[in-house]
């Protein structure tokens, strides 16, 4: 998987370099998403839900299949488990999970963290990128490198599914790092009704987080139809989804990092949620 992602990143960096004569501000990562077959389940018995996981620029189009060794499922009673078996095909990864409890589960897919270093060289103002942390890249950089900045990428993706009545134990914040905390239950989002989320950094409202919320099926329309927001001091985002179906939210925040390995950390959180027709 690492190899797959690396090559994707290289390709993205090259493209960005060709297209943009101006400043390339970030490495373009493929959005990582988890799509359950059902978000709400009614059953007295334990019931299976199937999940697709892929990384792609079209919303819920299959492209790159991530490894799920670091994926975890959090149960309503507080238990958490690794995904024991999954199928990694070329364009997506698939697993099924049995909901043995009533309440809301969280599926959390974490990409292994990685580093990228940006610099300028000589008289040219164009950004250049090289993979690796501060220590690793020291030898790789040319002698005339300047404006060097190394960024740690921390990317994860979440989906919630509920059997019978919903519970909220799985989205209590840990108050560590960058977190999305739903204020409306993510399995209770209704078309044309307002949704509120709190965006936190280390338990405090995160200002300046960039949020993009896009309805699925972007390959079947001309406009991406994204809602784009940026958090203010309250760290709160509100939006009203106008169409039913699965949606993907991404929120990202760059913060300074006190580490010999990197100057900043870019945290990206993806959340898949279903909008229920009203």
């Amino acid at each position: 998987m690492k190899k797959g992602f690396k090559s994707v990143f290289k390709a993205a960096v090259v493209t960005a370099g060709l297209l943009s004569g101006a400043v390339v501000s970030t490495v373009q990562a493929h959005p990582l998403w988890v799509l359950p077959g059902e978000f709400n389940v009614s059953d007295e018995k334990a019931s299976w839900v199937t999940f697709d996981v892929s990384a792609s620029h079209t919303v819920f189009g299959y492209d790159k299949s991530p490894g799920l060794e670091q994926a975890k499922v959090f149960s309503p009673d507080g238990d958490s488990n690794s995904i024991r078996t999954y199928f990694k095909s070329q364009r997506r990864s698939v697993f099924d999970w049995q909901l043995t409890q009533d309440g809301t589960y969280k599926v959390h897919v974490q990409r292994p963290t990685f580093y990228y270093t940006r610099y300028k060289a000589g008289k040219r103002e164009q950004d250049k990128w090289v993979s690796g942390n501060k220590i690793e890249t020291k030898a790789k950089l040319p002698d005339n490198a300047r404006d060097i900045e190394t960024m740690l990428y921390d990317i994860s993706s979440v989906a919630y599914v509920t059997r019978n009545a919903p519970t909220d134990s799985v989205f209590q914040p840990t108050n560590k790092g960058f977190e999305l905390v739903p204020q409306i239950h993510p399995n209770d989002i209704i078309q044309d009704e307002k949704v509120t989320l709190n965006v936190l950094i280390d338990g405090k409202p995160a200002k300046g987080a960039k949020v993009e919320i896009t309805p699925g099926g972007s390959q079947y329309r001309n406009d991406r139809n994204s809602i784009e927001l940026e958090t203010d001091e309250s760290g709160r985002i509100q939006f009203t989804p106008g169409q039913a179906g699965p949606w993907l939210m991404s929120a990202s925040l760059v913060s300074p990092l006190d580490s010999p390995m990197a100057d900043t950390v870019k945290a990206v959180r993806f959340l898949t949620f279903e909008v229920i027709p009203n």
Partner: peptide
């Protein structure tokens, strides 16, 4: 079959899931 009760989408959300 209760497995499909959720397809009564609004009733399920407003009432059924709390007391089917």
């Amino acid at each position: 079959d209760k497995k499909w009760l959720k397809d009564l989408r609004r009733w399920w959300r407003k009432a059924g899931r709390y007391n089917p």
